[in-house]
Amino acid sequence: MENLNALRVFVRVAETRSFTLAAKRLGLTSSAVSKAITRLEQELGVRLLQRTTRSVGLTNDGASFFEHCLQILAQIEDAENLLGQATSRPHGRLRVHLPVGFGRRVIMPMMPRFLYQHPEIVLDAELSDRSVDLAYEGIDIAVQIGEPADARLIARRLCHLRFMACASAEYLAQHGEPRTPDDLDKHHCLAYVQMHTGRYRDWPFSQNGKARPKAVSGRLNVNNAESLLEAAAAGLGIAMISNFIAADAIRGGRLRPVLTDYVGEGPPVSVVYLPSRNLSPKVRAFANFLIEEISGNPDWDKITP
């Protein structure tokens, strides 16, 4: 094989399933990426990719080769990190995945401080609520809500979320305030709809340490927490909202918490990354930064239900 660049090009194409996206990430032209893959396939004597006019996929040989390439490139990065670990400052491109709401409300406002502290890092952040495979997609580090499903990942706890039922003062003046979760049957509830299943997310109440989930739905159901907040603030009903999203609206008087005796601890939030004998300085720096900034008693968790 001529050089390792061909492996890096192949890995980017396999991760993105696109010559165009791979070219953008590598700073190359699509033509150069296509030629590099063709040369690699000719050198190996096997077809690695299935190409159609709409997509690019891995062949069976390509999938096997991709897994080996990931291991090879990871070992090379480990070796580079080991050599320079004592004196190396965090540097290079850092690919991060963040959940939309938590990423936009909590993490992105912190990024100017992180980048100021680490001027040699270039950060590529994707905000989405999809499930990601860090190894397959080449993502360095991610923030996840809930227990990590991938047992391979190193997970470092940042905090726990709490969910609060909230409504505007105008709505409560008109319709009254519910005293128990069962009272919600008489109210307009604004549910979070899970579009891939069509189901509404249960509201996670708790009493005396025991979970008491409540099924709700109403005339307006949305798959976005920010939109639920705005609908509740506009007086359309009661919404169940994460504390980090609701905090500013509660402080500003746009929303009032209700059913506060039934608030329980929500899912954990963790920063996760793949295990490595010699963790990349940029990954370690980002994880340590988030832990220092968020762990303990974050500002948005000081709202008393």
Rank of each mutant, 00 (worst) to 15 (best):
Ser295Gly: 05
Pro90Asp: 14
Arg199Phe: 07
Leu70Trp: 02
Gly264Ile: 02
Leu44Pro: 00
Phe163Trp: 07
Gly138Ala: 12
Ile250Met: 10
Gly92Ile: 06
Phe65Asp: 09
Asp185Tyr: 01
Glu292Gln: 12
Leu279Cys: 08
His97Cys: 15
Gly252Pro: 00
Thr180Asn: 11
Gly198Ile: 01
Gly266Asn: 01
Ser18Ala: 09
Val33Ile: 05
Pro275Glu: 12
Gln207Trp: 08
Arg93Trp: 06
Ala6Tyr: 00
Leu40Phe: 00
Phe163Val: 12
Gln144Asp: 08
Pro112Thr: 07
Asp261Ser: 13
Met195Arg: 14
Gln71Lys: 07
Leu98Asp: 08
Arg201Lys: 13
Ser242Leu: 10
Arg179Leu: 13
Val106Ile: 09
Asp261His: 05
His188Arg: 11
Asn5Thr: 12
Phe10Ala: 15
Ser276Tyr: 00
Lys35His: 10
Leu127Met: 09
Met110Ser: 05
Thr16Arg: 13
Thr197Asp: 13
Cys159Pro: 01
Leu70Pro: 02
Glu293Arg: 01
Phe244Ile: 07
Cys69Arg: 02
Ile141His: 04
Ser217Trp: 09
Arg8Glu: 14
Leu236Tyr: 08
Val33Met: 09
Met195Asp: 14
His68Tyr: 08
Pro112Tyr: 01
Val263Thr: 05
Ser128Leu: 06
Ala63Ser: 12
Leu94Val: 04
His188Thr: 11
Arg199Met: 12
Arg8Cys: 10
Ile154Val: 14
Asn297Ile: 06
Ala23Gly: 03
Asp133Leu: 07
Ala232Ile: 03
Lys186Tyr: 04
Gly27Val: 06
Asn243His: 11
Met111Glu: 06
Tyr200Ile: 12
Ala169Trp: 00
Gly252Tyr: 01
Glu126Trp: 05
Asp182Trp: 03
Asn5Ala: 15
Pro281Val: 12
Gln117Lys: 08
Asn224Leu: 11
Gly264Arg: 02
Gly235Gln: 02
Gln117Ser: 15
Val258Pro: 04
Ile250Cys: 11
Thr304Glu: 15
Gly266Phe: 00
Glu41Thr: 00
Pro298Thr: 01
Gly235His: 00
Arg104Trp: 06
Ala173Thr: 02
Val258Glu: 12
Leu115Arg: 08
Arg89His: 15
Arg89Val: 15
His68Phe: 08
Lys24Glu: 15
Glu80Gly: 10
Pro181Asn: 06
Leu48Trp: 01
Pro99Met: 07
Ser88Val: 07
Glu15Ser: 09
Arg25Tyr: 07
Gly237Met: 05
His118Phe: 07
Asn297Leu: 13
Glu147Trp: 03
Asn243Tyr: 04
Arg219His: 13
Asp124Leu: 10
Val216Phe: 04
Ser280His: 09
Asp261Tyr: 01
Ala225Gln: 08
Glu177Met: 09
Gly209His: 00
Asp182Gln: 14
Arg113Cys: 12
Lys186His: 11
Lys282His: 09
Leu48Cys: 05
Gly296Tyr: 02
Thr53Ala: 15
Ile139Phe: 03
Pro275Cys: 14
Arg93Gln: 15
Arg254His: 09
Leu153Asp: 04
Glu170Asp: 15
Glu177Gln: 07
Ala14Ser: 07
Ser88Gln: 08
Asn81Gly: 07
Ser34Asn: 09
Gly264Ser: 05
Gly62His: 01
His160Glu: 13
Thr87Asp: 14
Val13Gln: 06
Met108His: 03
Val100Thr: 11
Arg284Val: 10
Val271Gln: 06
